[in-house]
């Protein structure tokens, strides 16, 4: 196990100390610093202000200034923990932490529930799922008749909405994803295991000395 002497200064000025972020997440200090390399490139892609705007987030996701996307917007809103309209570095690290392969399953289930609870009512409602299905169809240029969409919704709510009150609560969601683990695949990013090799340049900017003990 390593012992870290933080000499946080120029590089992380204005951002949370990587040692603190590492202590509160599944990331090591080096991994937090490597994430900072990624963060810097995203946050400076349109305006170099050290913060990620929604436009910069979409540009990083789609590699072009694509039109608004419901799902990207929703992810952005969830990453924007402090609801400031921008993502700062601690939001970025703490949110990506949920996507770490080692993050607790419960955290992934909670995050995915929030993702689909578009109106933040504490329930995933049928009209929200329909809205997301329609958005997916637009995005993929796939066409389905409204009747087919309703059939898919009927089947989904029959399986997931155990008490048949027309909405999926947290406990029903928990049971549903436990039976359908593939639904949580989007909640794990294997890339996060290799972040220091993907962004090796962090070593040139590292402000933390690791001292083996």
């Amino acid at each position: 196990m390593g012992c870290f002497h933080s000499k946080v200064g120029r590089q992380f000025s204005g951002h949370e100390d990587p040692v603190i972020l590492a202590s509160q997440t599944a990331f090591s200090v080096s991994e937090v610093e490597a994430l900072y390399e990624l963060y810097k490139s995203i946050s400076s892609s349109i305006v170099d202000d050290g913060l990620i705007s929604k436009e910069e987030f979409q540009l990083a996701l789609f590699k072009n200034k694509k039109k608004e996307n419901l799902f990207a917007n929703r992810i952005f809103e969830l990453f924007d923990v402090k609801r400031k309209g921008v993502i700062d570095f601690s939001d970025f690290v703490r949110s990506l932490d949920v996507f770490h392969p080692n993050a607790p399953q419960e955290d992934k289930i909670d995050f995915s529930f929030k993702l689909y609870d578009l109106d933040r009512t504490g329930f995933i409602e049928r009209h929200e799922v329909k809205q997301m299905l329609i958005a997916l169809l637009c995005e993929s240029e796939m066409k389905l008749a409204d009747e087919t969409i309703e059939t898919i919704l009927d089947k989904t709510f029959l399986d997931a909405d155990v008490n048949q009150d027309g909405k999926i609560d947290k406990s029903e969601w928990h049971d549903f994803v436990s039976k359908n683990p593939s639904l949580l695949k989007i909640m794990t990013l294997p890339y996060l295991r290799d972040i220091t090799t993907t962004f090796p340049s962090f070593v040139f900017h590292s402000e933390v000395d690791e001292v083996a003990t």
Binding site: L38, K63, V129, S140, I152, T156, N180, L183
Partner: peptide, 26 residues
Amino acid sequence: VAPVTMNAFELISKSQGLNLGTLFEK
């Protein structure tokens, strides 16, 4: 697989907007 046999969340999870892996692709 015909979409009608899939549940709605399986379909939704295929959205490009939910694929955060692209953030890491240079």
